[in-house]
Every structure is written in structure tokens, then in C-alpha cells.
């Protein structure tokens, strides 16, 4: 059971609030979906009928995911600043609950995007996935890592004066290990390798997610309350 006063309950409450707010305007959803699909069409169109290796297929997929994340995932925090609801939010919930709620929202948003994007990618790029369970695992882990970095960076940039321009600049170097590991892991999955071949990537991704989420929980209050 989840206690009503507990941290998890509050986090889910924040998540629910963000989902409500998102579906009212659909700002982040529109931005991220349209961006991802436009990029996919551009990539697919410019490549034409060329035969691509697994490494390039997986790199292109993760480039699309990375830039889509950079267009949509900062919205959870930037919205609070722009609509000047941040101060009220500071009063009603503890910082950790807010961070976790918004992290869950970003993970859901990115996974929701991939639910549409990846089938389209498979169709447009004429890709066959060798080992589907491993492929899904890599996508889920990679997206969680991308969202984890993006969420704390979104909190940071929402406090600055140049909100849009800084997001990718700040996120990319910190996100680079996730991107490299996901690209490698996904390429292995497309080739059809078994899960034991991708164990290194899975372990490192999990480790990275744990480290960055823990650090974010510890550091979030310094960004949020000032």
C-alpha cells in the first residue's frame, strides 16, 4: 500500500497534475511528436534506398530520440516558471516528490513518443530487429537514462534567462555515456545478439541511471529552492 502522506503518493500526485496540465494544452506532446516525425521523414528521405548497417541504423534512431528529447523534456520545469506556478508548487510538495513526479512524467512522455516513433522508424528505414526483447530493453533503459539527465538539466535551465538555447548544450556532455551505450546496445539487438552479449551495456546503463537519479535527488533542492 502507498501511504497518503508518503513521498511516493506525493510524487504520483505531481505526475497526475502534470499529465492533466499536459493534456489540457498538449504543448510538450505536440512539440516532441511533430519534431520526431519531421526528423524521421527528413532522415529517411535523405537516405533514400541506401542499405544501412546496424550501427548506423541505431545511431540515427538515437540521434532522433536525443533531439526530440531536447525539444520537449524541458517543458515540465520551464512551464512552472513561465506560468509562475513554481512558488505555489514549492509550498505544496517537498522537493524530492516534485523531482520524482517530473522524472516519471518525462520518462512516460519519451516512452510514449517511442511507441509511435519506433514502429514508424522500422517501416521507413526497412529495418528488421533481430532480438526484439533485448531491443525493447535497450530502448527503455536508454530512454530512462536520457530522461533522468534531461529532467535535472530542465530544472537547471528553467532558472536561467536563456532557457531554450542552453538545454542541449548542458545536457549533451552529461548524457554522452547513455547515448554511446544505448547506440551500441541497440545495434547489438538489431543484429540479433542474445542478452548476454549486451550485458555490459545493460549493467552500465542501470548503474548510470542509479547514479544520476541519486545525485539529482540530493542536488535538486539546491536548484529548486533559491
Amino acid at each position: 500500500m502507498i501511504r497518503k502522506s508518503g513521498l511516493l503518493y506525493k510524487s504520483f500526485y505531481i505526475l497526475q497534475k502534470d499529465l492533466h496540465q499536459e493534456f489540457r494544452t498538449r504543448y510538450a506532446i505536440n512539440a516532441i511528436f511533430l519534431f520526431a516525425i519531421t526528423t524521421l521523414v527528413v532522415v529517411s528521405f535523405s537516405i533514400g534506398a541506401a542499405e544501412l548497417s546496424q550501427n548506423i541504423l541505431s545511431s540515427l534512431l538515437w540521434i532522433i530520440i536525443f533531439f526530440s528529447a531536447m525539444t520537449g523534456l524541458s517543458h515540465v520545469f520551464v512551464r512552472e516558471e513561465e506560468q509562475q506556478t513554481a512558488d505555489t508548487l514549492k509550498l505544496v510538495a517537498p522537493p524530492v516528490a516534485i523531482y520524482l513526479g517530473k522524472l516519471l512524467f518525462n520518462i512516460l512522455l519519451l516512452l510514449g513518443l517511442e511507441l509511435i516513433l519506433i514502429p514508424l522508424y522500422v517501416v521507413f528505414m526497412d529495418m528488421s530487429v533481430g532480438n526484439l526483447p533485448v531491443f525493447i530493453l535497450m530502448i527503455v533503459l536508454g530512454s530512462t537514462g536520457v530522461s533522468a539527465v534531461a529532467t535535472i538539466m530542465a530544472a537547471i535551465i528553467s532558472r536561467t534567462s536563456a532557457k531554450g538555447a542552453l538545454f542541449a548544450v548542458l545536457s549533451f556532455p552529461v548524457m554522452l555515456p547513455v547515448l554511446i551505450l544505448s547506440i551500441q546496445g541497440t545495434a547489438l539487438a538489431i543484429q540479433g545478439s542474445s542478452i548476454s552479449a549486451g550485458m555490459d551495456e545493460i549493467q552500465m546503463l542501470l548503474l548510470f541511471i542509479i547514479v544520476i537519479v541519486t545525485a539529482s535527488i540530493l542536488l535538486f533542492e539546491f536548484v529548486w529552492i533559491l
Partner: peptide, 26 residues
Amino acid sequence: ALRSALESREQKAQISAVYSILAFIT
């Protein structure tokens, strides 16, 4: 870039400290 985009002295200090710690652990 982050420091130049932050306005108050305290914000500059605090938020850039958070970023440098996050960057260092990667």
C-alpha cells in the same frame, strides 16, 4: 554559458555548483 545566463550572484554560485558536480560524476 550557464553562469552567464544566471542572474543573481547566489544563483550563479549555487546552480553552477550543482552542474559542476553532475558533470564531474559522469
